[in-house]
Nucleic acid binder design. Structure first.
Lengths: 206, 206
DNA sequence: ACCTGAACACCGTTCAAGT
DNA sequence: ACCTGAACACCGTTCAAGT
């Protein structure tokens, strides 16, 4: 009897969920609006009611991706004991996400030639804000430029390591080792000493 | 009289050249075999004689891209005076390339779900070999793992910075500054001291 | 060996029409 | 407000046929 007369009101969410699945198995190229509609059981024109464009759906996926990555980063940070451990965990979570959802990550960092996609940029900013909080309170004696540089460099390095693994340039374990090396290098740098926490980076016995 | 009876034998090269142009103006999505054939003035089936697949053309573009990037890296390295300067120039060249040809760079580092694309991997390996030579001769007292880690970390960092700029997450000048910060950090690290050149990293007055 | 042109299945997008 | 279904222009890919 419940043969679903139309769709039950959550078509937008259903399309996005299905899209994430397809994205993981077939990549961005395998993602078509018509196929998505077919899988969910609506006509090919139906998605138009929720996404003006194919790009609009991709943007929505990117926003969702940034939110999920931010969540992961937050959890990883909370699970760490001292500051180095926290950074390490966030780095690992970042790279894991980028590799396991490589196609999604691709979407999140695509060129986006047109001016559109403001929501995506907003979601990206939220992620960076999360990273900023992970660095602890701003110190009066720290140059904001240095702090931003450290944060950006952290993100860039993780992104780069993930790209190497995702493109099969290096195997995953080597990527993990690279994370260790990178974190040791970054946390041991002068820049880190100048910018992070309350001098609690060298977590030895004071 | 020379109304070109068919095509003059270099259709493959003509298609690739046109593809690079389209890639720069319209991205990967704007790249279609039929459109390419139209621009070059052949029938839509003609490209098939040189590329079995659309993917085959994309792979060929990626190989070309890696070769060009390797050339750029080689030139940048040669133009540098001391080792830090050389590294800095290679880094700048790498990021410049990645930003100016962002769509091509995307192709070069795509997941490539299928096993295919061995030629692409080969071209990528050649680039890394070039980077390895830039690090100077291997030293007997250096762990090969450390040396590889430094090399990979260098590439990953540049790749990550380029991704941040290409996706408009940060403006280009900030990307350039980030290169400076990254190189200072990397070259000043213990890992660098253990792996690079003949202790000539700290290029001060001995 | 290289290219043409018809054919097929698939897309994104638009839009009048239904409920 | 949300969805259907026909329509249009565009693709990638295949393949018999031409030169």
């Amino acid at each position: 009897m419940t043969e679903r007369p139309f769709h039950h009101g959550n078509l937008r969410a259903a399309l996005l969920d299905e899209a994430v699945t397809v994205l993981r198995s077939s990549g961005v190229d395998g993602l078509s609006l018509r196929d998505l509609a077919r899988r969910v059981g609506v006509s090919h024109g139906a998605p138009r009611s929720h996404f003006v464009d194919r790009q609009a759906l991709l943007d929505a996926l990117a926003v969702q991706g940034f939110d999920r990555l931010r969540q992961r980063a937050r959890e990883a940070f909370a699970a760490g004991r001292d500051l180095p451990d926290r950074f390490h965990r966030v780095a690992q979570a970042y790279v894991d996400f980028a590799i396991d959802d490589a196609a999604l990550m691709e979407l999140m960092f695509q060129a986006k030639a047109d001016g559109g996609g403001e929501a995506v940029q907003e979601a990206a900013v939220a992620l960076f804000t999360e990273l900023d909080q992970a660095m602890g309170p701003r110190r009066a004696d720290t140059d904001d430029g240095d702090r931003d540089a450290f944060k950006l460099l952290f993100a860039a390095t993780m992104q780069g390591i993930a790209a190497l693994v995702a493109s099969h340039r290096i195997p995953r374990p080597e990527g993990d080792r690279l994370i260790d090396v990178a974190m040791t290098m970054m946390l041991g740098s002068e820049l880190a000493a100048r910018t992070i926490g309350e001098g609690e980076v060298g977590a030895g016995s004071s």
